[in-house]
Simulated scan of single mutants.
Amino acid sequence: LSLPRFTFPTNSAFLSTRVDWKETREAHVFKADLPGMKKVEIEVDRVLQISGERSVEKEDKNNEWHCVELSSGKFMRKFRLAENAKMDQVNANMENGVLTVTIPKEEVKKPGVKTIDISD
């Protein structure tokens, strides 16, 4: 019985890096699914930019590969931050292949209603 071989380019980019963005009362929270990533860069300047790279496993000439589906290459995601984001207080951590970036919010003062008296 012969099994079909599937191969994908080893230099393909991470085009499908998935990111969730939720807003709580206190912060904007981004969660990115980055399994196997050792180095991730985060830049913040009114735009949150998350980028990184996963290198391909070195091909061993002594083994026969039947299927290669794990992606390798670079990825980058950008998100325009809301006006209430405190860009100087960004916090990030990686746990179990999930990157969490938390950006606290500052209170935005809503314009109050002003009553104007009309004199006769």
Results as ranks from 00 to 15, higher is better:
1 L>N: 02
2 S>V: 02
3 L>D: 09
5 R>T: 07
8 F>E: 04
8 F>G: 06
11 N>Y: 15
12 S>H: 14
15 L>F: 12
19 V>N: 07
19 V>G: 07
20 D>S: 03
20 D>G: 01
20 D>K: 12
22 K>V: 10
24 T>H: 06
24 T>Y: 08
27 A>L: 07
28 H>M: 00
29 V>M: 00
31 K>G: 06
33 D>N: 05
33 D>E: 13
40 V>Y: 02
41 E>T: 13
41 E>P: 09
43 E>K: 03
43 E>D: 14
45 D>P: 03
45 D>T: 03
46 R>D: 12
47 V>D: 08
51 S>V: 06
52 G>I: 04
54 R>T: 04
54 R>C: 06
57 E>R: 03
57 E>N: 13
59 E>W: 13
59 E>D: 12
64 E>N: 00
68 V>T: 10
68 V>K: 09
71 S>G: 14
72 S>T: 11
75 F>E: 01
76 M>S: 03
77 R>H: 14
78 K>W: 13
83 E>T: 15
84 N>H: 12
86 K>I: 15
86 K>H: 04
88 D>C: 07
88 D>W: 04
89 Q>M: 13
89 Q>V: 06
90 V>G: 03
90 V>H: 05
90 V>Y: 00
90 V>P: 01
92 A>C: 10
92 A>R: 02
95 E>P: 12
98 V>T: 11
102 T>V: 12
102 T>Q: 07
103 I>N: 11
104 P>L: 09
109 K>Q: 13
109 K>Y: 11
117 D>S: 09
118 I>S: 12
118 I>Y: 06
119 S>A: 12
